[in-house]
Amino acid sequence: METSYAICYMHCGTSRPIVHLDIKSSSIFLDESFTAKLSNFGFAVSIAPGEDFFRGNSVEGTFGYVDPEYQETLWVTEKCDVCSFGVILVEVLTGQNPSEMFSGQ
């Protein structure tokens, strides 16, 4: 739940939405109280006020977690993070690594 709150804050709680672009299970840490902390903001971008997207130059992120629409268009939107978070939920429910699920292994 804390990770979804962090994503919501990045997208809606700042004057310029921040898109993480590399949300994956290994980017979520638990502190001593088992509170989730989102990390690894190396690929994060900020979308300008009044804009709906940021046009990237190349696909950033980890295979298996990257939004397929972003891979095709290079348009960075909040949907990129929502898709990645959905992949994490599938990973938690199935216990399988996304790169294995999507590569057909």
Rank of each mutant, 00 (worst) to 15 (best):
M1R: 12
S4W: 06
Y5G: 11
A6W: 09
I7E: 04
Y9Q: 15
M10H: 15
M10L: 15
H11Y: 12
C12L: 05
C12W: 08
G13S: 14
S15R: 14
P17F: 04
I18P: 11
H20M: 10
H20G: 12
D22C: 00
I23W: 00
I28V: 14
L30R: 01
L30F: 02
D31V: 02
D31M: 00
E32H: 14
F34T: 00
F34P: 00
T35G: 01
S39K: 13
F41K: 05
F41Y: 07
F41P: 06
F41Q: 05
G42F: 03
A44K: 11
S46T: 05
I47C: 05
G50V: 02
D52Q: 05
F53N: 04
F54T: 08
F54G: 06
F54A: 10
R55T: 07
R55A: 14
S58D: 02
V59E: 09
V59N: 11
E60H: 10
G61Y: 08
T62Y: 01
F63G: 13
F63K: 09
G64E: 03
P68T: 01
Q71D: 00
Q71R: 09
E72W: 03
L74F: 09
W75K: 14
T77E: 06
T77W: 00
E78A: 14
K79W: 03
C80H: 09
C80A: 15
D81P: 09
V82H: 04
C83V: 13
S84N: 02
S84A: 14
V87A: 15
V87H: 08
L89H: 12
L93G: 03
T94G: 11
Q96C: 12
N97T: 12
E100M: 13
E100D: 13
G104R: 04
G104F: 08
